[in-house]
Amino acid sequence: MKTLRVDISKCTACRQCELACSWHLTGSFNPAKSAIKAFVFDTIARYVPYTCFQCDEAWCMNSCPVSAISIDAKTKAKVVDKDRCVGCRVCTIACPFGTISFDSATGKVYKCDLCDGDPSCVANCPTGAITYGDVDTSSTSRMSQWALKLTDAYSVKEASL
């Protein structure tokens, strides 16, 4: 199973992810209807792309009274079936992260569906701030960067001399 990962040190707040996602979801360039948003915290100079990371608890799915949200067999994403959705918005209240939203233009909710396994935001992020990788091993590369730093700290050979 793969997951979206975010490296906020690489985000420049260009919002190409919002354009790519809204195109995928609505067929127009419309950041307001994007499931991923790049938040700008200007006073602390931090830029954070944020979206649904497909939690296991799946409050959205479990709160839906008409079973409009289900788990995609291939990607394991929680996906909204627009034909079943009745726009009651209970899922938007149940999700503690705010990552499922209501679109008044369609009367349905929308969220990240992982683009059927080829996330558009990942493909269009110019800096690699958003990546899509194996959920069990994708922390390892970050860990290894810090492991490397330990090699600066001291050399075992020198210490034992």
Partner: peptide, 9 residues
Amino acid sequence: ANKACFACT
């Protein structure tokens, strides 16, 4: 940090 304008790569 470095920062982008809208849609700027």
